[in-house]
Design a binder for these strands. Structure first.
Lengths: 214, 214
DNA sequence: CAGCATGCTAAACAACGTTCAACAATCAAA
DNA sequence: TTTGATTGTTGAACGTTGTTTAGCATGCTG
């Protein structure tokens, strides 16, 4: 029994664009990985399972992404792209508004994204890459762009750069902390309305503090 | 070879207090687990390693703690006790100070603890228990006590309870977010001085906002 | 001494990430 | 076309996890 079926021989057999098969395989694997993370969380991402659902072998995943961390980072990178797009439109829509309103809009948008893509958002912060390894440069770049967006939202240019950057960092971290603890149920049962109120409280309070120390 | 040595038969052989062997074994395992977490992080905690270092078998760990999650929770519980003790003294030392100073002192103390016990502190928030399982009641109780401490620090009794609790939650979450992202190097290279300034900024700013909306 | 309950041991199991020899497919040159 | 080299995929196998469990030493009880 188990007559050791001859290899399906399905690779490189697709006639079409050049460099197509490999790229489609990459996109397919990546899409499946993102879907698993989105539906069941980062912990549910397993090499074998991705291979089965993608119709390839485990080895292929390692050929393309190096290891599971590479696959996770590629997925997180797509999440960052998605998030930046949404935040950028929110930024542009409130460009004429006064500063506290702009900050609140941005913070609420960040919250909305985190709630709508709960597991994908969590995956960004849950993932810790093994010691010694470095993040890809393009991934680092995406994060820097996001922070620059926040920094610009805080003070057009009427404020000392140092204070503005500190405010951008602290405020983002604060909003982030509120969302994180809320989603993890670490402080109280999860309640979106309450999180909304918490964020508005901290952003307006900080805005007043900022205006005062100008 | 490997003549299957007769079982060492080391258990229950200690003459002494009643119920002593088991408790000392429990404390030993727990102490080793805490040390591993403190020195190398939650990810370095492995059943076999704990068993070897404790001089017992893996099964014993499961007999005492149920599973690895039980051991982790027991370790985190000790961290909570340690943290609450430090925060409580900080709370008592600043009981006479005005509210913003009190909040700042408490927040800075929280930061100091997180830096001093980096991995133990991280373990509390990194650990996610498997779906369906509930946290032990005493563990939940410890967290509630910590939050009550913060809530009391914010408004003696001159403030509406609802607003006070919201402020306590948001402010703690904010400080927590600042520390979390700083330790994870998610926003910029880690710099304790900068984190200190960020926390003072958000706490004083929020205090002003609180005073305003009173 | 015989029987029983307790609870630690250590071997086994299942599932994971990861590696690698074998092999199919393609292309360039003869 | 035939040959050889190269590229890229396969799936079995390896090592390391968390977890379970049969086996047995121990202490207690009659």
């Amino acid at each position: 029994m188990t007559a050791r079926a001859p290899v399906p021989a399905m690779h490189k057999t697709s006639a079409g664009d050049p460099a197509s098969f490999r790229e489609r395989l990459r996109d397919g694997i990546l899409g499946i990985a993102v879907r698993i993370i989105a539906e069941e969380g980062l912990g549910a991402l397993q090499a074998r399972r991705v291979a089965v659902e993608a119709g390839c072998s485990v080895g292929t995943i390692y050929n393309i992404f190096g290891d599971l961390d590479g696959l996770i980072i590629a997925g997180n990178s797509e999440t960052l792209v998605l998030m930046e797009a949404e935040l950028r439109t929110a930024y542009q829509e409130t460009e004429a508004s006064p500063m506290p309103d702009r900050l609140t809009a941005l913070a609420i948008k960040y919250m909305t994204f985190a709630f709508a893509h709960r597991e994908r958002w969590s995956a960004i912060f849950e993932h810790r890459l093994p010691p010694g390894k470095m993040l890809p440069v393009d991934y680092d770049q995406r994060r820097a762009e996001l922070l620059a967006l926040l920094s610009h939202a805080i003070g057009g240019n009427t404020m000392p750069s140092e204070l503005r950057q500190r405010a951008a960092r602290s405020l983002f971290a604060s909003v982030h902390g509120i969302i994180t603890l809320a989603l993890a149920n670490k402080l109280s049962p999860f309640d979106p309305k309450s999180v909304d109120a918490d964020i508005r409280f901290i952003v307006t309070a900080a805005s007043h503090g900022l205006a005062q120390s100008r």
